Computed example of a mutant assay.
Amino acid sequence: MPVIPLGSQIFDLAFHPTSSIVYTGLLNGKVKAFTYDEQGTHSDAFTLRISKRSCRSLALSPDGSSLYAVGKNRTLHTIDTGAGTVSETRQGAHDAPINRVVCPTPHLLATGDDDGMIKLWDPRKQDAIRTYTQHFDFISDFLWLQDKKQLVATSGDGTLSVMDVRSKKPEPIAHSEDQEDELLSIVPFKGGTKVAVGTQLGMISIFNRNKGWGDCVDRVPGHPHSIDALCALPSTYPSSQNTILTGSSDGLLRVIELLPTRLVGVIADHGDFPIERIAIDRAGEGRWVGSVGHDEVLRLTDLREVLEDEDERDTRPEDDNEEGDASGDEGDDAVHPGLSLAKSGIADRDEESGDESDVPKPRKRRKNDEKDLKGEPQKKGRNQVDVDPSFFSGL
């Protein structure tokens, strides 16, 4: 597995949509870019010190010509990726440190800060075009819904909200109920009809767009620690419609199928250090998945090596799996031989039932200040979740 050492804690990464270039935002305020080849061998592209404070989030324009960087200095930086220089700086873009940025279209940019404020920007204009204040805690992630031209935001206040960017009203068109847990990450699946949300207590909350955004329709337990990052598989994989990648604070990068739910495997391990962000190159359709966190390295995992054999097994006739189906295990759907399951902490679940009887644990605040993110190892607690023994019987 190729590893790129950075020398500082990494808050975010972004892959160029068409070129083999990856950008990283660091705790020391630097943005570092690297090129890589088919073998994962890397070389330095450029290094910029945009601030003395942390760079928390990065977002590339759809064509990859501009990189937007935000962080604790409350400034929105625009970087020319071709020249490797800062082309524009919007100081005081927010009144609080900016936690997330996303650029879904060439003329739309969204930022969210630690106080829950969301701002929409037109990169061609200096000032924000709209401001939303429905959240009161940090904005943790964004999801762009292309079919509806809507932006979904998750927050540490335990709710998510949906904004129609075509509307001139500074109010969301939907705002969920309090989920009694911090919402940290979000990703679509099932062709975008459903959305998975990662939480502080390790639960994956499932929202069905056809049933509205008021409350989740299902909860998938299993992660022993918080789910800080979520990512969808490239559409070229047959199982991409219901398979996602999860990055947890226990340092494990997992592949999980949803509805019905099963663990496919663990494809990367950051040791005792939390994973902050994960992303797939080539605008989410490439072969390399990058994961970053507190261990100060960028790990590149080749999806072709760990998933292609699994997808080949998934395409076999159903009669090949009769024995596994009868016993309640996965039979021929066993994971790739190189994947670790014993430390996964994920149990199988049935098809979506809409049962919301899971009683959440007492809410635990997520420390979002850099003084608490100096890379101190966390215990994995991999044995905190009981797993049905039959899940492992066919492996």
Rank of each mutant, 00 (worst) to 15 (best):
I4T: 04
D12C: 06
L13D: 09
K32D: 13
A45N: 13
L48H: 01
S54T: 12
C55T: 15
L58I: 02
L60D: 03
S61F: 01
P62I: 05
L76Q: 02
T78A: 13
A83S: 07
R90D: 03
H94Q: 05
D95A: 10
V102T: 11
T105E: 14
D114T: 10
I118Q: 02
L120Y: 09
A128L: 02
K148E: 12
V152H: 05
T154V: 15
L160P: 03
E180Q: 15
E180Y: 11
E182M: 07
S185T: 06
G212P: 05
W213K: 02
D215V: 10
R219H: 09
A232P: 00
L233W: 07
S235A: 11
Y237K: 06
N242Q: 09
T243D: 10
I244W: 05
T246D: 04
G251P: 08
E257A: 13
T261G: 12
I280E: 02
R287Y: 05
G293Y: 06
D302Q: 06
R304A: 14
E308H: 00
R316E: 09
R316F: 06
G328F: 10
E330M: 05
D332L: 14
H336T: 03
S344A: 15
S344I: 01
G345H: 05
I346K: 08
R349W: 10
D350S: 14
D358I: 09
N368E: 04
P377V: 08
D388F: 01
S390Q: 08
F392Y: 15
